[in-house]
Computed example of a mutant assay.
Amino acid sequence: MAVLRPGGPAAPQPSGPAPRRVLLVTRDEELDSLLAGRRIAAHLTDLEPTAGDGPPPDVALVCDDDAATRRLLDLGVPVVRLRSGHRTTADPVVDGALHRVHRPGWLPGPWPATPGGARATGMLAPVRTARGRQRGGSLLLLSLWGVPAGEADAFTSGPLRELAAEAVRRTQRCEVVCDMRVESVRATLEGLDGVRVRRAADTDVDALHADAELLLAAPTLGAVALAQARRAPLAFLPPLGDGQRDLADRVARVVPVPVAADPDDPSLWSPGQPGAPDPWSALDGAADDLRGAQRVARTLRQLSLAPL
C-alpha cells in the first residue's frame, strides 16, 4: 500500500484555520492504482497531504483497497473509494464510502451492475498533456497485477525479451516499467544494451512517456489515458489475464490499437510518422471525458468541507 502526496508545489497557507488534510492510498503493486492516485493528487495541491499518522484526515481517496476503506470509515473519515483498473466483474460495495469507477465514456459496454451508487469517472488523464519536443526511445509499460502466474511467466521469459530488443533496434533505447515481478523482468532482460528496467512505484510514468517516441503497453486504463490525452501512438502488449483481454477487445471496437504479437511487424514501429492516421480522431467528441481526475478531486474537496 502506498500513501501519495498531492503533486506540485504546495500553495502558501494563510494564517487562520488549519488547512484541510487529505490521505491518498493506492496499491503500489498495481499500475492502474498508482497512476490513478497520482493523477488525482496532482489536482489537490490546495489540501495538505498526510501520511496517515496523527489525527484522522478530513477526507481520503482509497484506490482499490477495501480494508483501508473500512478502517478509515470506522474512524469517521469521509472516503472516496475508486476502482482504478478494468474489471470484468463488479467490486463489492463498502457501505459509507462514495464509490467511483475509472471508466471512459467512449468504452463500449455492457457493464456489470454497480450497486451502491458507483459512478463512472471518465478517463483519468495526466495533468500535463504536452510531449517533449525531442522525443526518443520506447516506453514498454508492463502490468502483471492480477495476471495468472503461468501467463506472466510465459510472457516475461519469452516474447518480452524479443520486443525489448526490437524496440532498441528501432528506437535506440527502451525503458521497461513494471508493477510486479521487477527482479524477474530485470533478469530476463539482462545483457540487452539500451534497456533499463524500473519499478512503477518508483517511477514517474507520465513524465517518462512525455519524452518517449513510442509506447508499448499492457492493456490498462492508465496506459490508454496516456495515449489518448497526448494523442500519441500506442501498441498493446499481448493481453495477459481476463481483464486485459476484455479491455483490449473493447478498445479495439472504437480505436485501432495494434497488438505487439510479432516484434517484426512494422506497424508497431511506424505510427505517429508524418501522414499516418491519428487513431484517436474517432474520440474527438469526447474531450470532456478526459477530466476524470479533476472530477474526483472536486468531490474530495467537497467532502473535506461538508462530509456526508
Rank of each mutant, 00 (worst) to 15 (best):
W145R: 01
V147G: 01
E151S: 12
A154Y: 04
F155W: 15
T156I: 15
S157T: 15
G158C: 13
E162M: 04
A165G: 08
E166H: 14
E166Q: 15
A167M: 11
V168D: 01
V168T: 00
V168Y: 01
R173W: 15
R173M: 13
C174Y: 06
E175K: 03
V176S: 00
V176H: 00
C178V: 11
C178S: 10
D179I: 00
M180Q: 15
E183C: 04
V185C: 02
V185I: 09
A187E: 06
A187G: 01
T188R: 12
D193T: 05
V195E: 07
V195I: 04
R196T: 14
V197G: 02
R198Y: 11
R198C: 02
T203V: 03
V205G: 01
V205W: 01
D206P: 06
L208R: 13
A212P: 07
E213I: 01
L215M: 13
L216D: 13
L216N: 13
A217K: 04
A218I: 02
A218V: 02
L221G: 07
A223W: 02
V224F: 14
A225H: 11
A229Y: 03
A229E: 08
R230F: 12
R231G: 03
L234T: 01
F236R: 10
F236P: 08
L237S: 09
P238F: 13
P239S: 04
P239K: 01
L240Q: 15
D242R: 15
G243I: 00
R245E: 15
D246P: 10
L247E: 08
A252C: 03
R253G: 00
V254W: 05
V255C: 10
V255K: 10
P256F: 08
P258G: 08
V259M: 11
A261R: 13
D262P: 03
P263T: 03
P263A: 06
D264H: 12
D264W: 07
S267A: 15
S267D: 15
G272T: 08
Q273V: 09
P277Q: 09
D278T: 00
D278E: 13
D278H: 04
D278Q: 02
D278I: 00
